[in-house]
């Protein structure tokens, strides 16, 4: 379209011709010189792919079949969000929601109280937009094939873990409250109680964090580990389909 329309732009064309004559002049000179790269002449613009480019019809038709299969599956409505649920630190509406869902599901799977859930904010790939939340939304939010991993820790390890969260500036958590003071965790509460050396705690997380991904090394050496056959994404979908709506919220579980 761009190319056709130029023929109607006589004044511009005249300029183009003038321009080319001038450029050709420069080029001729340069080719005589013994330069390998004439770096001053490096042109530096990139091509942006936007709606000024008409899509290739053949490819568009090819994609359409795949897309309709995909959207039949991904377009299923789960719930409605009353606002944009954003990522962030030290806590965030998206981190709070997803970590709460994880702890809730883990508690059900374990048949016993799960004290804490931890996710990594980098693994939450998009904010949940306001309005309809579909299966596709959850796939974009959590595209990874990660499952729930249960880890058991003693009180000392829990304090160490809280400090690692503090160094990171906060990650999505549930069941844990703390304040970050100069990169250290203070006022640490688990289930509303101070952490006790006499107690042990179950932490729900994803296998990526437990397997050595991410910045929380305490998660790599638990007292005990159990891998559940529940995909994190499936836990999200299953929760969301059972609530009429979700809303962004923060409750100062991690604060500066």
């Amino acid at each position: 379209m761009l190319y056709k329309s130029i023929y109607y732009k006589l004044p511009a064309l005249v300029l183009v011709v003038l321009l080319l004559v001038s450029c050709a002049g420069f080029t001729g000179d340069d080719s005589e010189r013994d330069v390998i790269h004439d770096l001053n002449r490096v042109q530096k613009e990139y091509l942006r792919i936007d709606d000024s480019i008409e899509p290739d019809e053949e490819m568009k038709a090819f994609i359409k079949d795949y897309a309709s299969d995909l959207f039949a599956y991904m377009g299923r409505k789960l719930t409605v969000s009353t606002g944009v649920i954003e990522r962030g630190q030290p806590e965030s509406p998206l981190g709070n929601l997803t970590a709460d869902i994880l702890r809730n599901r883990a508690t059900r799977e374990m048949g016993t109280q799960v004290d804490v859930a931890i996710l990594n904010r980098g693994g939450l790939r998009i904010p949940i937009p306001e309005g309809e939340v579909t299966v596709g939304t959850v796939y974009e939010l959590m595209p990874f094939e990660n499952h729930i991993t249960m880890l058991r820790f003693n009180g000392r390890q829990m304090r160490q873990l809280a400090n690692e969260l503090a160094i990171e500036g906060g990650e999505p958590v549930s069941g844990l409250r703390m304040r970050i003071d100069n990169g250290r965790a203070t006022d640490l509460l688990v289930n509303g109680q101070p952490v006790s050396d006499q107690k042990e705690y179950w932490v729900a997380t994803n296998n990526w964090l437990a397997d050595g991904g991410g910045p929380l090394p305490t998660l790599w050496s638990p007292l005990e580990r159990r891998d559940l056959e529940v995909m994190i994404r499936d836990a999200f979908i299953e929760y969301l389909v059972h609530v009429p709506e979700i809303s962004p919220f923060t409750d100062y579980r991690i604060r500066d």
Binding site: L2, H37, V42, K44, R48, S52, I53
Partner: peptide, 18 residues
């Protein structure tokens, strides 16, 4: 190799105004 340059055409509306 004598000379190198990157694309000098951007395909977007900015240049689509006449």
């Amino acid at each position: 190799l004598r000379r190198t340059w990157a694309a000098n055409h951007r395909v977007d509306q900015t240049y689509d105004m006449v």
